[in-house]
């Protein structure tokens, strides 16, 4: 009974932690963007703008929650729930420390993560379809095509790591990196994985499903109040998710000298989150056909070559 209680407490703690972190990121991102683009960002509410999140939250909760009369009500409501649920569920398999995490020992942990990310696209597509407006539909269709294309080599990129460890178990993968982080032998697996991760999270430069200068707000054009808030939090939660899975797969998880494991894990994730925000501050958005041909013609061959070379080296006995 105690074991069940303990895992329940852990699950609730992770859930709350992720949601709060994602909410905090909405503020951190604007401040960092301001810093990198040589402007201030929100700094009025509270000390250095730290209470901005509270102000935003109050505002978003009291906005009118409007469902357009022309929308498909059930699916329109379900879409943001799907996005947030799948992202949060994927955290279940992430090992947060030596013995922390909800279910880090699952023998198909990595596949579970891939499954949840591939399901989360339903939220975006259905939001686009059920809104019954042209901007939203175009955003949803872009999301569908983009996610399917980038998922292909996301799955192929992690196979390199799976080959080296012989396991889908994320805890085993972290344990295998005590001597050498996988980013070194698997650099050409890491690169496509991170790029696909950014595309999965619909972050700039891959945020064409939203594309605010051409599609209004893309798939969530018709959403308001907390339904929009759920898409928003879902996006930041998926940034945290992609950052943590990258750290687990390629940067040794919680391993590191001197500092306690949890601190190392937080530091590494923080670095990746900052990198995500830096990308948004620095890069322009590509054209849609450029995005697609980049995925199929450059990243897919790269991951397949990486797999072939990794396999050949393993066969030759060099690791």
């Amino acid at each position: 009974m105690n074991a069940i209680l303990l895992s329940l407490i852990q699950a609730v703690a992770v859930l709350l932690g992720i949601t709060l972190l994602a909410a905090g990121l909405t503020f951190a991102e604007r401040r960092l963007l301001g810093f990198w683009q040589d402007r201030l960002g929100p700094n009025r509410v509270g000390w250095q703008g730290t209470l901005q999140i509270v102000a935003d939250m109050i505002k978003i909760f009291f906005k009118q929650d409007w469902t357009p009369p022309f929308a498909d009500k059930i699916i329109f409501t379900a879409a943001p729930i799907i996005v947030l649920t799948t992202v949060v569920l994927a955290f279940a398999v992430i090992p947060l420390g030596p013995f922390a995490g909800i279910m880090p020992n699952l023998n198909i942990g990595l596949l579970f993560f891939l499954g949840m990310t591939s399901l989360s696209v339903y939220g975006v597509i259905l939001a686009g379809w059920s809104s019954n407006s042209k901007f939203a539909l175009l955003g949803g269709m872009r999301a569908a095509a983009q996610t399917i294309s980038y998922e292909v080599f996301m799955g192929l990129a992690v196979v390199g790591v799976v080959m080296l460890t012989g396991s889908f178990n994320l805890e085993t993968i972290v344990a295998a990196q005590t001597r050498l982080w996988f980013v070194i032998p698997q650099f050409f697996g890491f690169l496509p994985f991170l790029i696909a991760g950014i595309a999965e999270a619909h972050r700039l430069p891959f945020d064409l499903p939203e594309g605010e200068n051409e599609l209004g707000a893309g798939f969530h054009t018709e959403y308001s109040s907390m339904k929009f808030g759920m898409f928003f939090i879902g996006e930041y939660a998926s940034i945290v998710l992609i950052s943590s899975i990258t750290v687990v797969l390629y940067f040794g998880g919680w391993h590191g000298p001197l500092l306690p494991p949890a601190v190392w894990f937080a530091l590494k994730i923080g670095a990746f989150i900052a990198f995500f925000i830096l990308l948004r501050a620095a890069l322009p958005r590509p054209r849609y056909d450029q995005l697609m041909s980049y995925g199929w013609k450059l990243m897919l061959p790269l991951t397949i070559a990486n797999l072939a070379i990794t396999g050949a080296l393993m066969l030759a006995g060099i690791e």
Partner: peptide, 8 residues
């Protein structure tokens, strides 16, 4: 998702 794409 592909099916959905076509239906959309």
């Amino acid at each position: 998702v592909l099916f959905l794409f076509v239906v959309m």
